[in-house]
């Protein structure tokens, strides 16, 4: 379990990036963190894996204050995938890149190779093992960075904007992988602007603005709140816009339509008899 208690953080002592974050993350949860650029989302997840330590307040990981734990100790439990893969990749082959973390946490050579193969395959990267990450496209490098952390299966997994540069297939593959890891008891936290990805895959959403949490609850509830959408600089999902436009003419259309399948059924209901 990770508990953040009234966490404050400022990078430069002038601008406060986090202003009193309190949050409990239970084992086996799956949730999204949304918010405008500069809302403090990345700063918050960096506190979860010990890259940053609170200047005021506490972060408790499995009952221990992270202030008294080393980054290596925390990293064994909490894996973080950065937004920009180039901040993370440094070896000259995809294979070495993925096996590096595995060997570091004590997997044998053959175990590491096995895990590496499995992870690369489930991210559509089979055949890339011998390539240098730096000859790959932006979207491919992003998946190599994901693979290097996902392969270690940390108990808590935090991903910063994992869907950037990914096409529809790859997003589905990633969602599936995260869902499987979550089923095996891993906690999955995703920081994202990709509202459709959140709606389809995450039951809980935390919305941040100006270094504070402004909403925390079911995704449906948080994303139906227009104020949250506005303060998080999000665009209302296309399905919500369609439902709103339909509601002007067909009052029977519900208030909380968000899923594509729900809208499809609603339109079938309207046109089915026509």
């Amino acid at each position: 379990m990770i508990i953040l208690e009234d966490v404050h953080y400022s990078y430069d002592g002038v601008y406060t990036a986090l202003r009193g974050i309190s949050l409990q993350v239970d084992d086996g949860e799956r949730f999204a963190v949304i918010g405008a650029n500069g809302a403090g989302k990345t700063t918050m997840v960096k506190h979860m894996n010990g890259l940053l330590r609170p200047q005021k307040g506490r972060v408790i990981l499995d009952g221990r204050d992270t202030k008294f734990m080393s980054v290596a100790e925390i990293a064994r439990k909490v894996g973080l995938v950065f937004q920009n893969p180039d901040h993370q990749l440094f070896l000259d082959s995809v294979k070495k890149e993925v096996e590096f973390g595995l060997r570091n946490i004590g997997f044998t050579e053959s175990e590491a190779a096995q895990r590496r193969q499995k992870t690369l395959a489930s991210l559509g990267l089979e055949g890339f093992a011998e390539r240098s990450p730096f000859t790959l496209s932006g979207g491919e490098r992003k998946r190599v960075a994901l693979a290097s952390v996902l392969s270690t299966e940390p108990r808590f997994l935090a991903l910063d904007e994992p869907t950037i540069g990914q096409d529809a297939h790859q997003k589905n593959q990633l969602a599936q992988m995260l869902a499987e890891m979550n089923k095996r008891g891993r906690t999955v936290v995703v920081v994202t602007h990709d509202i459709e990805f959140v709606i389809e895959n995450f039951p809980r959403t935390i919305a941040m603005a100006d270094g504070q949490i402004i909403a925390d609850g079911s995704t449906n509830m948080v994303l139906s709140n227009d104020e949250v959408i506005e303060r998080c600089s999000l665009a209302p999902p296309q399905m919500t816009l369609a439902a709103r436009a339909l509601r002007n003419v067909f009052p029977e259309v519900g208030q909380r339509l968000t899923l594509l399948s729900e809208l499809e059924e609603t339109i079938m209901g309207i046109l089915g008899g026509a």
Binding site: Q238, M239, T240, L241, A242, A243, L246, V249, I270
Partner: peptide
């Protein structure tokens, strides 16, 4: 877009 979809549904009815 969602709005275009809603317009087409209205036209169809």
């Amino acid at each position: 877009t969602g709005v275009e979809l809603a317009e087409l549904v209205q036209e169809a009815t």
